[in-house]
């Protein structure tokens, strides 16, 4: 059985003590497979950010363990954490948080240099990444010259430049308009699929449910029951698995929002999904084939 990208075991975080003690995160367990996108939603103050901080090795849990690619983060000394964050975790922030004094290329290449790459190599790698994200023509631009969507793509490139095992995104679409928000969501999904990264997103944005393999609901510091979600491969709508109209093709099961979508799919399925998908890795959870989405089985949105 292959190792999950991220493994969270009975993690609890308490602040204060005695009468003033607050339990921000309560006995959370979670496995995120390579290539999986997990969205964590929940009301303000539910503990999402605290959980994200712990997943990013920026905050130590009071109890429990967190493993990133098999390495127990919670057991590492304080001195080793920056290196872990640098090489194994990619951060995408709500406010982009680009360095205002340097250009786009340096914003992405600096973390690579910090990780030990020569400046020339780091810049080459950063340029290739930015090119792939459609920012090849913006390399020498200052962050302030970019649109919100471009800034977020730079931030995504920065998060990926050291090829981390997991990518943590904190409200990645909060400061973006609808078009750029969709663009960012598609990009996060591509990152998970094509690069095999575990992507964990904390957000209030319902639109992100469309690209998530799992949607987790957090409330009062704990993950609650949620329903399995599926994405309609025809219209892209996110639907509860139990309520989906089901069809099987090429040995795989697909969920649809309506019979109309199902019929349209069955008429010409190759318009919507690719044939011969690679079998899912044992233990890695159900991964969709390139270009299409399968019904997922993990719990997601609370009932």
């Amino acid at each position: 059985m292959s190792q999950p990208g991220l493994q969270v075991q009975h993690v609890t975080k308490r602040f204060g003590a005695g009468d003033t003690e607050i339990v921000a995160v309560r006995d959370v367990s979670l496995d995120v497979a390579h290539g999986e996108v997990v969205l964590i939603m929940g009301p303000s103050g539910s503990g999402k950010s605290t959980l994200l901080l712990m997943l990013g090795a920026l905050l130590r849990p009071s109890t429990g363990e967190i493993h990133v690619n098999g390495v127990e983060v919670t057991g590492l000394s304080e001195r080793r954490l920056p290196d872990l964050r640098l090489r194994h975790i990619g951060f995408i922030f709500q406010d982009f948080n680009l360095l205002s004094a340097v250009d786009v290329l340096d914003n992405v290449s600096i973390p690579a240099q910090l990780a030990g790459a020569r400046r020339r190599d780091a810049r080459t790698r950063a340029a290739a990444l930015l090119q792939a994200l459609g920012l090849g023509h913006r390399l020498g631009f200052a962050p302030e010259q970019l649109s919100g969507g471009e800034k977020q793509r730079v931030a995504i490139a920065r998060a990926l430049v050291n090829e981390p095992d997991i990518v943590l995104a904190d409200e990645p679409t909060a400061n973006l308009d609808a078009r750029h928000g969709h663009e960012t969501m598609r990009l996060l999904r591509r990152i998970a699929r094509e690069r095999g990264r575990s992507v964990i997103i904390v957000s209030h944005d319902q639109r992100i449910r469309d690209i998530a393999d799992r949607v987790l609901w957090m409330e009062d510091g704990a993950l609650r029951d949620a329903v399995a979600m599926a994405a309609d491969p025809v219209c892209g709508m996110s639907i509860e698995q139990e309520k989906a109209v089901i069809a099987t093709w090429d040995g795989r099961t697909f969920g649809f929002c309506s019979r109309g979508c199902r019929d349209e799919f069955l008429e010409q399925p190759l318009q919507f999904v690719l044939p011969d998908p690679a079998p899912p890795e044992a233990g890695a959870g159900p991964l969709p084939p390139p270009g299409g989405r399968e019904i997922v089985s993990q719990p997601a949105v609370p009932r």
Binding site: G42, P43, S44, G45, S46, G47, K48, S49, L52, L53, G56, L58, L59, F91, F93, Q94, D95, N97, D170, E171, A174, V202
Partner: peptide, 11 residues
């Protein structure tokens, strides 16, 4: 505190 970067704007 590097965590302050994440804390801002989220719960």
């Amino acid at each position: 505190d590097p965590a302050s970067v994440v804390r801002r704007g989220t719960s």
